[in-house]
């Protein structure tokens, strides 16, 4: 990302950042981080955004012991679209490509709408559709 700040402001900022870095205890804040990830989703799709490095590795895992952990993306994009996930708790971790430690992690809970609610809307839609067809068909006959 390019910024359009004049050089002087930029150097001031660097000083501030440096000061902040010295003041705070080292906390693994270096490296990439997720940018406001979702917490829950009812349709199994959402997007994840991150920033903080040139190239990244993104890992997805689920289940209590994260047995199925695997890298789902490796490259320089700063977001991805996740979709088609069944109900469950998913852990995503991000790090700079090649780094040892994971820099940030987030958990997204996917809980689909209950099928009963889905079919309620489906039935409502079907009923309205039948009314629409009948209204047009009857209207045509009478017209």
């Amino acid at each position: 990302m390019r910024t359009l700040m004049p050089p002087r402001t930029r150097s001031w900022l660097w000083c501030l950042l440096l000061l902040a870095g010295l003041a705070l205890p080292a906390q693994g804040t270096a490296g990439p981080a997720f940018d406001s990830p979702p917490e829950r989703d009812a349709a199994g799709f959402f997007s994840l955004d991150w920033e903080g490095a040139e190239r990244f590795e993104l890992e997805q895992a689920s289940g209590p012991d994260h047995e199925d952990a695997r890298i789902i993306y490796r490259g320089s994009d700063t977001s991805t679209t996740v979709s088609g996930l069944p109900d469950g708790e998913y852990r995503f971790r991000i790090r700079e490509e090649g780094a040892e430690e994971w820099a940030d992690e987030t958990v997204v809970v996917v809980e689909h709408h209950p099928l009963s609610r889905a079919f309620l809307f489906f039935a409502l839609g079907a009923a309205l559709f039948v009314v629409l067809i009948l209204a047009i068909a009857r209207g045509r006959r009478l017209a």
């Binding site: 009812a42 349709a43 199994g44 979709s83 088609g84 996930l85 069944p86 689909h112 709408h113 209950p114 099928l115 609610r117 889905a118 079919f119 809307f121 489906f122 409502l124 839609g125 079907a126 309205l128 559709f129």
Partner: peptide
């Protein structure tokens, strides 16, 4: 896998 599911709740709500 859900993308192939014919009983995907949000998708069923979306149809009509």
């Amino acid at each position: 896998p859900e993308l192939l599911n014919l009983l995907f709740p949000a998708a069923i709500m979306f149809l009509f």
